[in-house]
């Protein structure tokens, strides 16, 4: 999902990698939850489009807040705008190779 990223956007992804899903205990980037990262330098906004592994996930809010916090902490002039989407629906195929290795898949 994460394609055509600029160098700076890749850095954002790396920062989001510090956010761990508390149930699976792997980071949400390798879990495949992050769909899009886009930096708008004019408006100083970092857009993140992401999903969650299940609707009604009780820690969903916290994960999203976590993403906003770490992004804004590292790009202090920017605002993080995290959008939660349910389409396309997350599936285990979206887990990165790194994540699959961790999960012994």
């Amino acid at each position: 999902m994460l394609e055509n990223l600029s160098q700076e956007e890749q850095k954002v992804v790396n920062v989001i990698k510090t956010v761990i899903d508390p149930e699976v205990e792997i980071n949400i980037v390798d879990l495949g939850l992050i769909y899009k990262v886009e930096i708008n330098d004019n408006d100083k906004i970092i857009y993140v489009t992401m999903t969650l592994s299940a609707r009604g996930c009780p820690v969903g809010d916290t994960i999203i807040k976590h993403v906003e916090t770490v992004v804004e902490a590292n790009w202090q002039d920017y605002k993080a705008d995290v959008e939660l989407v349910w389409e396309p629906e997350w599936t285990p195929e979206m887990i990165t190779d790194e994540g699959k290795k961790f999960l012994n898949m």
């Binding site: 969650l52 009604g56 009780p58 969903g60 809010d61 989407v85 349910w86």
Partner: peptide, 11 residues
């Protein structure tokens, strides 16, 4: 857009 989230609903 944040339908499906429940932390804010938690008692």
């Amino acid at each position: 857009m944040k339908a499906g989230l429940s932390t804010k609903n938690a008692p």
